[in-house]
């Protein structure tokens, strides 16, 4: 095994205190995947050493005559150690076909713009090492969103769902600035919402969810997780928490979740989405239980 495979998360510094000491689900998944494909790896490594990576990229453009029919284009990209899926499509665009279109910005798993469907699974292009993938690497736009062009999908619906849960801090009792008071959060409470606050709005989870695919009104894992972040924040008042739970317990809210765990599997920030959704289900039940 070559050394790059031992460090799948080169974008996240290993000193990141949030990750210290624990193997992230992503790392575990990649490791499991590798163990199952030792043979292919021998080949992959040969190709890696022998310089090129074979990628197949989805192409579609309603405005260009010969791209109206969706197809896959093959590119052979020179391999470099540490190269990510995003690096590969950027190389293909810069060197082979300048019309190849995709979103990207930060290149370090922060902006959330480059979630693609890579070898049948939602991943962040910039956080996925080519050396960990079976070749040819098939790169498609996120499923369950309309394709605008090549790897670019329409994110409007995803954003609508995110906004539907009122993703902002609401508090009637903001301390008076003249008192120089701070709005303190206990370390325990910060710990509780820590993972939920990591969402980068990439839409991978929503795209992986079979329920969201069938029910367009379902809030979806990212929006529910966003609601969790605020509902669990002790600094918001009880009334606002109730208001949030009322949004979440609607017909297309938390109860749509069938615990398939697809979202949790694909989230590039390793947010325990299913766990958060389940906790909100229990909160919603608790709120409605009356013992008199």
């Amino acid at each position: 095994m070559s050394t790059q495979q031992q460090e799948p998360e080169s974008q996240e510094s290993p000193q990141d205190p949030e990750m210290k000491g624990t193997e992230s689900p992503q790392q575990r998944r990649l490791k499991e995947k590798q163990e199952g494909m030792v043979d292919e790896h021998a080949e992959d490594e040969a190709e890696a050493a022998g310089e090129t990576v074979h990628i197949k990229v989805f192409r579609y453009d309603p405005e260009v005559a010969d791209k109206q029919e969706p197809r896959f284009d093959d590119f052979h990209v020179p391999f470099e150690k540490g190269m990510t899926v995003l690096d590969a499509v950027m190389y293909a665009r810069d060197e082979f076909d300048s019309s190849l279109t995709f979103r990207h910005s930060c290149r370090q798993a922060v902006c959330g713009s480059d979630a693609f469907f890579v070898n049948g699974s939602q991943m962040l292009g910039c956080k996925t090492q080519l050396s960990e993938l079976e070749q040819p690497v098939r790169i498609e736009p996120l499923p369950h969103q309309e394709v605008v062009k090549d790897l670019v999908v329409d994110m409007d619906h995803f954003y609508d769902q995110m906004h539907a849960v009122e993703p902002y801090f609401q508090d009637e009792e903001t301390p008076d600035a003249s008192d120089l008071e701070e709005q303190r959060q206990t370390p325990e409470n910060r710990e509780k919402i820590k993972m939920s606050s990591r969402c980068i709005w990439c839409g991978a989870c929503m795209s992986s969810c079979n329920i969201a695919a069938g029910d367009n009104e379902y809030l979806g894992p990212a929006a529910i997780n966003k609601a969790y972040k605020f509902a669990m924040d002790d600094r918001e008042s009880e009334e606002i928490k109730e208001h949030r739970l009322r949004i979440l317990e609607q017909e297309h809210g938390v109860w749509r979740c069938q615990t398939q765990f697809s979202c949790t599997e694909v989230c590039p920030k390793d947010i325990p989405l299913t766990e958060h959704i389940q906790e909100l289900k229990r909160e919603a039940v608790k709120k409605n239980l009356k013992f008199w």
């Binding site: 579609y60 405005e63 499923p143 309309e146 394709v147 079979n210 069938q258 615990t259 398939q260 697809s262």
Partner: peptide, 27 residues
């Protein structure tokens, strides 16, 4: 959106080989 491409059901059950444990458990 009229000018966009919908990949239809092939995205769902056509991908059964890529389902993870939780999805199989549900099915």
């Amino acid at each position: 959106m009229s000018q966009s491409y919908n990949r239809g059901l092939i995205e769902d059950f056509g991908r059964w080989k890529e389902f993870s444990a939780g999805m199989w458990a549900w099915i």
